[in-house]
């Protein structure tokens, strides 16, 4: 079974628990934070993925991590289950998939806006409004800066990317001239 399929199965199970307990958003957020912590700490990965570390030691470490991240009981239990099943390497995929499911449930679309320089707030507002009117869903914008764009905007919605940057236009021009 591929990592994506595994992540989907675990994410759907956690999603069901979140829906049943009415804590879907909190659980999704907590799992995402745990995945970020796991991905960001090589020591944590080395300990939790090491099969020589005793189960009790791993459990206590996960409890401590859950405590520091202020994770609720459902999220903690899900994390312990994932660790017991040796699926921590796909934790970030599980968190991502869970976030997607949670957003779909809540009617939220997440979009990333990349610009060369920070733009006036009204531009972001108009952008958000246009995407919302197009998707008929609430849009959560994530703003990023990349000076290599030179100018213009790149918007990423799911797998779709709308490139209106100067860099993109120059790259397209280069492709056309060399074709």
């Amino acid at each position: 079974m591929s990592d994506a399929a595994i992540a989907d199965r675990y994410a759907r199970a956690i999603f069901e628990i979140g829906v049943e307990t009415g804590q879907l958003e909190a659980i999704s957020s907590q799992i995402r934070k745990a995945a970020e912590a796991f991905a960001g700490s090589s020591e944590l990965r080395a300990v939790l993925e090491n099969p020589l570390v005793a189960e009790s030691a791993r459990e206590s470490l996960l409890k401590e991590l859950a405590g520091r991240l202020a994770m609720g009981e459902p999220a903690t239990n899900a994390l312990r289950l994932i660790a017991r099943r040796r699926r921590l390497p796909v934790l970030s995929d599980i968190a991502s998939r869970l976030g997607t499911l949670s957003d779909e449930k809540a009617g939220i679309v997440r979009a990333t806006v990349v610009t060369a320089v920070p733009l006036p707030e009204e531009i972001y507002t108009q952008l958000q409004s246009k995407i919302e009117s197009h998707t008929k869903k609430r849009v959560v914008l994530k703003r990023e800066q990349d000076p290599a764009l030179i100018g213009g905007i790149i918007t990423k919605i799911g797998d779709n990317t709308i490139d209106g940057s100067i860099r993109g236009r120059l790259e397209e021009l280069t492709r056309q001239l060399l074709a």
């Binding site: 006036p120 531009i123 952008l127 246009k130 213009g152 905007i153 709308i162 209106g164 100067i166």
Partner: peptide, 13 residues
């Protein structure tokens, strides 16, 4: 930058 952003918004839909 603003002109390019507005141009982008105009063509976004």
């Amino acid at each position: 930058h603003r002109r390019l952003a507005e141009e982008y918004l105009a063509g976004l839909e």
